[in-house]
């Protein structure tokens, strides 16, 4: 990891929102709400299709941060708010900006936009050890 500075922008991460990702993420997080795997019931509930559950979004935000800062980075806090849903066939693009860096802990503002709007906004606090050690 190079040095981290306030204002740094993380490279964007594009995630294809496949039906498989939505269902696999829901089941991996043990969330069996029908709106995350059963399109028929999702429609009956007024949704056009199944949509990603919040825990999968949360996990993807965490992954985005550790992908960037590397395996020694330690997540301290992940706080997200959802907006427009992630439906199958869409693409979500995660972007991030370092809002604060105090020596070993970064606060990163993360935004995920999909084809219909802003899916997620969040703030991640991550400790990045060995800063400047190489």
């Amino acid at each position: 990891m190079g040095s981290v500075r306030t204002g740094d922008r993380l490279p964007p991460l594009e995630i294809e929102i496949t039906r498989t990702l939505i269902v696999a993420g829901a089941i991996a997080s043990r969330d069996y709400q029908d709106v995350h795997h059963d399109a028929e019931l999702a429609r009956r509930n007024g949704s056009p299709d199944i949509f990603m559950n919040i825990l999968t979004t949360n996990g993807l935000v965490g992954r985005y941060i550790t992908d960037h800062f590397g395996p020694t980075a330690v997540l301290r806090k992940v706080a997200i708010r959802l907006g427009t849903p992630n439906y199958p066939g869409d693409t979500m693009v995660l972007t991030g900006t370092v809002e604060e860096f105090d020596g070993d802990t970064a606060t990163v503002r993360v935004v995920g936009d999909n084809g219909i709007g802003r899916h997620v906004t969040g703030t991640v606090t991550v400790t990045v050890p060995m800063q400047g050690a190489r």
């Binding site: 995630i15 990702l21 696999a24 993420g25 089941i27 991996a28 997080s29 999968t56 996990g59 993807l60 965490g62 992954r63 550790t66 992908d67 395996p71 020694t72």
Partner: peptide, 16 residues
Amino acid sequence: PMIRHWCEALGDTNPA
């Protein structure tokens, strides 16, 4: 196993 399933689902390859 549950960790591995999660990582597979989310495409998370973090070696940690």
